[in-house]
């Protein structure tokens, strides 16, 4: 699991790569919070290179989503693989976290 943070205008775009499961969820949470905590910007997670996620990983998304909502910062996901998308659907996370098909759509959605 790797994270890459880049700025797209006023939005922090974080690209997530690899697997997120119980063995690295904590590490993922720490890295992600460190990556987005540094800026008071909205956040887009680009999931195009995320292969796998379990509920332990979802937990991190929920924590981050709540954190950003409290800070009044935008938060969206984009480019979910079919399998990852299915997990979001099963758990209803697609209805509480904004999910977009591609990065541009997500960035423009949180920029507004």
């Amino acid at each position: 699991m790797d994270l890459a943070v880049e700025q797209a205008g006023a939005v922090s775009v974080v690209a997530v790569k690899g697997r997120i499961d119980g063995s690295n969820a904590r590490e993922f949470e720490e890295k992600l919070m460190a990556g987005i905590g540094a800026h008071e910007t909205s956040v887009v997670l680009d999931m195009s290179t995320l292969d796998y996620i379990s509920s332990a990983g979802l937990r991190v998304f929920l924590v981050v989503a709540k954190h950003l909502q409290e800070a009044d910062r935008g938060f969206a996901l984009c480019s979910l693989s079919a399998e990852v998308g299915e997990v979001f659907e099963i758990t209803g996370f697609n209805s509480i976290i904004n999910i977009h098909d591609d990065r541009d759509a997500a960035v423009s959605a949180v920029s507004g």
């Binding site: 979802l58 937990r59 929920l62 997990v87």
Partner: peptide, 24 residues
């Protein structure tokens, strides 16, 4: 089973695993 229709601020952190199992 968790209430997956709850809004973000009410969703508990955790408790999703067995729901995923049942769903898949």
């Amino acid at each position: 089973a968790p209430d997956i229709g709850q809004p973000l601020e009410d969703r508990p952190v955790g408790g999703l695993g067995i729901h995923i199992v049942r769903s898949l």
